[in-house]
Design a protein around this nucleic acid. Structure first.
Lengths: 348, 348
DNA sequence: CTGAAAGCGCTAACAC
DNA sequence: GTGTTAGCGCTTTCAG
């Protein structure tokens, strides 16, 4: 055992064994019409016997195609992204593409590095969701100049033309806040992520719009930016809680931010939804198991992933005729146990 | 705009521009000691100006190394795996490796297909967590015969020698069930996943061992196999609930299985932990936000991922002297709001 | 139907 | 220091 560090066998190896040429073998293996079925059978049989595995590196170099697409996401341990990626992977598989995945960890430097590597690997297309801190878009322009198809999803650069698949962030935020207002809440705060990122910007815009429409004042000290993760929610709540005047409701820009609020509130001995209430945007399957179960806007993660891949595929297939395109998939309100003030009134 | 479908520029392009040879450029770009710093500077400067991006496909073919490692996991939208993968990715980045990720969707056929693709891509090593349905290990033997280093993590093949990183499934299950028994529970069921998978087998073995040690009978009808996902927990609970004699406690083999129980119990109008109680193995950051918060064995997902990569790296670096190795990282009991019978007694 | 020649873009010897 | 010569393993013309 151990002895057989067998060198990878090549087309030549099996050609020699059959006393035919490399080319014949190559064609036979790819079921090329040139080759007689007898030859094909022979070739395939000893290829199997020898345990031949084609060298994709060589194949790709020669064929100038990698059948590979690059994926860049800010985070993985986040239900929304995990779900997106899962659907991207299965869509890719269905179309015979492989995925090279990279995680930027919300760090723009990693993001750039990864994109460069992916470009060097000659991926045929790129699927990107940018970090919460990406403000320099020059890499993205670079990619475009190179002619490599890109589709952004969920978190996209603003102010430049892109292919993208997103949810209706602003409109959905409006719907959510309208629901909150109708439920009887008046003092509403927003933990807003970063407004230089589209999702932060749009959701905040929706928040403001809904308040204005509901004749409620917009209080600057109740709009707190700081990021999209658990820590951001935690910090923001701690910051908010030192003041006397607590809002009745907080609209968290993401599910992790909402979790951060839960954590901080627990530490401070404040009860949700009695002392302060929470709704959020996006998230996943766990909302309904939370205590209390969150009321939230449910992002169609699977759809976003799948559509993003399909959009990329479209461009891959018709690079010439292709025109830039944005797809918007609406989110849906899911009512849980938070944001129930209206019920309380009813009971009284 | 659009016009500059600029062909990728190559070493030759920049060599010609500088009237030096390809080789010089190649070396200069890789900071080879052969080259004078003047030349290097010149080369690097116009490489940058031209927007040169090395072609890794060509590089890898020539250098016979891909700096790439293949990852195969059964599922992504599962906190344990997402966390594992995140740590694998960052460990890989730190060592200048790229990750080609594939998701088998708990389907052994996909698993095989992905492994073959990865092998064809000439990944330098493989990190695998097998599906709950993998029973045919011939692919794994194949890989070994090829001499490609593999490390399995969490879900590993049983009965063959492997490099692997796992948690102390059996011992941890014993600790968990001992805790349950000490808390005063006597009628304990187990939703056991599949016993042909190591985690299912070992956890069930721990369960049995602890019952026996506690002088409790092992009731076959209270050990239900069926998978590691939410659906499995849901189905098992529905199946169990039609009988009159309900256990006081269910030990779920994974966190998703526990969620499935929550779901089914809710539908049936049964309260956790009062009507039936639940503990589980593994999971993630959400346990404490559940209602009720679960008591569970916490798997060190991040550590498992990181160590798995490091183990692979070891073998990659010293393929000759390398000996097969298994690493076990213990799980830790986290006490939540389920499994609190003992408290109830205390209060009485 | 089959094969010989050329080359994908790069790197590793070895000379100069 | 720099360049020349050979490939890496495969596919694509284009003759036979």
């Amino acid at each position: 055992m151990g002895a057989t560090k067998n060198k990878n066998i090549t087309l030549d190896d099996i050609a020699r064994r059959l006393k035919v040429s490399k080319v014949t073998v190559s064609k036979a293996l790819r079921d090329h019409p040139d080759i007689s079925s007898t030859t094909k059978r022979e070739v395939q049989s000893i290829a199997a016997k020898l345990g031949y595995v084609p060298n994709l590196i060589a194949r790709n170099l020669s064929a100038k195609s990698s059948r590979t697409i690059g994926l860049v996401v800010p985070k993985l341990a986040h239900h929304f992204f995990a779900t997106c990626i899962e659907s991207i992977c299965s869509a890719a598989n269905a179309s015979q593409y492989d995925i090279v995945m990279t995680v930027s960890q919300e760090n723009p430097e990693n993001e750039i590095k990864h994109i460069q590597t992916l470009l060097a690997m000659r991926v045929e297309g790129l699927l990107i969701s940018i970090t919460g801190n990406t403000t320099d878009y020059s890499v993205f322009k670079d990619i475009k100049k190179r002619g490599v198809p890109v589709v952004f999803f969920d978190r996209i650069p603003v102010g430049i033309e892109t292919n993208h698949v997103i949810t209706d962030d602003r409109a959905a935020a409006v719907r959510l806040i309208e629901f909150v207002i109708q439920a009887g809440y008046r003092k509403i705060a927003h933990f807003a992520g970063y407004s230089h990122t589209n999702i932060g910007y749009e959701r905040q815009a929706g928040f403001r719009q809904a308040l204005t429409a509901g004749n409620l004042p917009i209080r600057a000290e109740w709009i707190i930016e700081g990021g999209f993760g658990e820590q951001a929610g935690y910090d923001a709540f701690k910051k908010l809680a030192v003041r006397k005047d607590l809002p009745e409701m907080i609209f968290a820009v993401t599910f992790p931010v909402a979790l951060g609020i839960f954590e901080a509130a627990r530490e401070l001995g404040l009860k949700i939804p009695d002392d302060v209430d929470v709704v959020c945007f996006g998230g996943g399957q766990f909302h309904r198991y939370l205590s209390p179960a969150l009321t939230f806007m449910n992002q169609p993660a699977s759809d976003i992933g799948e559509q993003a891949f399909n959009l990329l595929l479209e461009e891959l297939r018709a690079p010439e005729t292709y025109a830039q395109k944005g797809i918007v998939i609406p989110s849906q309100l899911v009512i849980g146990e938070t944001c129930r003030k209206i019920k309380v009134y009813n009971k009284k």
